[in-house]
Nucleic acid binder design. Structure first.
Lengths: 353, 353
DNA sequence: TTGTAGGCGTTATCAC
DNA sequence: GTGATAACGCCTACAA
């Protein structure tokens, strides 16, 4: 035996290549490639024969070779800051949506973490320099997000989940943040609430900021008081914000909205421990619910967005961008209010007319 | 502009290849490769010069070429059934752990979904035939899991998260399921509970089955009654199981353990709606908590496992297996009981001696 | 319609 | 110790 390990005729576990198919079909590799890729210029009968033989031999494309040759990775990347949002219920659903649209078209999702180890920028840089992905999905966009310039400089395609606040070379998949907030404020005002509060996530995050602004505007235009507290989006943060809001019995809101449901649940916990009953003494509402919102007690009034659909739309938009197609401005169904048990008439309020 | 985008000589953004480096250094590409990979047989001064020039030119390895040549993907795969466990709090943490150990060694995580579109087997098959990954992490192992044979037949490496119940060619990263359950049952028995119940996930899932068995054994050996109800692991399922358990006031458990925290939260909801107070009238406990368990009211007594560490250990074990190294049996710290507010003395029970 | 040849960037082989 | 050169599997101008 030679030191070389080429014995394609011997080893039964060698994957057939297009050369093997070509040999068997008595044609050239080029023709096989054309036939396999559904390209014009191949005699229909020849094509059929080639496809048959390829199937029979169990040929399947080797992505590595194809990648090298075509300079594409056939994969998209998603970098998450895992430390920033533990227990986040939005992400898993979002990712499921992304995958749903990727796998049928032979694309894969490469997940990378930014929090641990190398910095976020380094993670994107590596993804690009190794050419592991063709594009990235940018989530949790920040104010003046430096990732836009970075990713563009790296030559990656991208899609932003939500609209950027600066010039962006990338398509965006926005969702109407205002409608839901307005519906929520109207809902609470109709219940007689005149002093509201919003427990927000970090305000560098654009969608957090937008919710906050929408909340403040809606309150102002309805002439109701509103307080906003920033948190780190964690359950703990939500609890602490609630404590702060309830600290002064003389001057506390009668309804609190939270930027996610785990903060809201923590808020309910704090309220209970303060001797307040939800929703009798205090109304509670949330954004971005997971399925538990429906089943806890009291069930959570929420502004819900279809996270999975959002992910799917983002994936589709990015794939189109990579293919050089510009999709008609993709727009997600606006977030909608789902009223449940955690919101009720404000204490001492007469029912709205 | 032509529709083609190939203009490598024109584009100023061409990445330097080792050929470029070799040219500049006045050596051959082979030598550059050796130098860059820290392999013996290169004159130290030559090596230094090559490294300098490579850095200066901004060379970085192209994974595609390396993959093609070395027949490795430098990536691991994880196939999840997204539909099966929406809102699962275990997975995100687990994945974060996987990534934590992967990125520092230049490996990536490819996530694929099985629920939507192609079948689970098809997903693994594709991952292998495209050669996208070197190995897969098998989670939520099922009884007589057919994935073991499939993945082995596909020539993929793998690691199982938890021990298989059949012969497995793959290393496993088990966790002691029994200790936590025993601690939980003892905790409840000490509180005076004599009639327990367990709301389990699908019993095809091995860890669900093991918990169930451990629960039944522990109850039997303590001489306390136990009822088990199977669910689909969803919050809804947890709620319905609770309804069933509480249906007959004459004969209902005084404590219920749930296989995950969202079922437990739903259970608390059902209890409240049935006019029962937790933990006064009914004690509630959970497994696999997310961070909200600490902050809800009442806070949840839980059996907690370090999901992130589990993911990291699984990744490490699989990487070792791929490298041909067999790690000393990796073992995770056993799950431990964290008693909180949701469990208390059984109604009418005298405090344990 | 089909065949040929060259190259994508890297690593492995084998002479020098 | 060093340097050509041939693969890896596929795609694609270009020639026939």
């Amino acid at each position: 035996m030679k030191p070389m390990d080429h014995e394609p005729d011997n080893d039964r576990h060698v994957r057939p290549t297009i050369a093997d198919v070509a040999l068997r079909a008595g044609v050239s590799t080029g023709l096989v490639s054309f036939a396999l890729n559904n390209r014009p210029g191949v005699n229909p009968s020849t094509r059929r024969r080639i496809l048959e033989i390829a199937a029979e031999m169990g040929w399947s494309p080797d992505l590595r070779a194809r990648s090298l040759r075509t300079n594409r990775a056939f994969a998209l990347g998603l970098v998450r800051d895992t430390a920033a949002a533990p227990g986040d219920s939005f992400f898993p659903a979002f990712i499921a949506g992304v995958e749903r649209d990727l796998s049928p078209v032979g694309q894969a999702l490469v997940l990378a973490s930014a929090s641990a180890g190398p910095s976020e920028a380094e993670t994107y840089r590596k993804l690009a320099s190794e050419r592991r992905v063709d594009g990235v999905i940018l989530t949790d966009l920040r104010a003046a997000d430096e990732r836009l310039a970075l990713v563009a400089a790296l030559g990656l395609a991208a899609v932003t989940v939500g609209e950027a606040d600066i010039d962006s070379p990338f398509p965006a998949v926005p969702v109407d943040a205002v409608a839901g907030v307005v519906a929520m404020v109207d809902h609470l005002v109709a219940l007689g609430h005149r002093s509201l509060a919003h427990v927000a996530g970090p305000s560098v995050i654009l969608h957090e900021r937008r919710r906050r602004t929408a909340f403040e505007h809606a309150c102002a235009s309805r002439g109701v008081a509103c307080r906003v507290i920033d948190t780190d989006s964690s359950a703990r943060g939500g609890g602490e914000a609630t404590k702060a809001l309830l600290a002064d019995p003389e001057n506390r809101p009668t309804a609190i909205t939270y930027s996610n449901d785990r903060m809201a649940l923590a808020g309910i916990g704090v309220a209970h421990r303060s001797g307040l009953s939800v929703p009798r003494d205090l109304s509670i509402a949330a954004f971005d619910e997971s399925d538990i919102a429906r089943y806890v007690y009291p069930s959570l009034t929420s502004i819900v967005t279809d996270a999975e659909e959002w992910g799917a739309l983002a994936a589709r938009t990015l794939l189109a961008a990579i293919a050089g197609i510009e999709l008609a401005e993709p727009r997600l169904a606006p977030a909608r209010l789902v009223a449940r048990e955690s919101t009720a008439a404000a204490p001492g309020a007469r029912p709205a007319s």
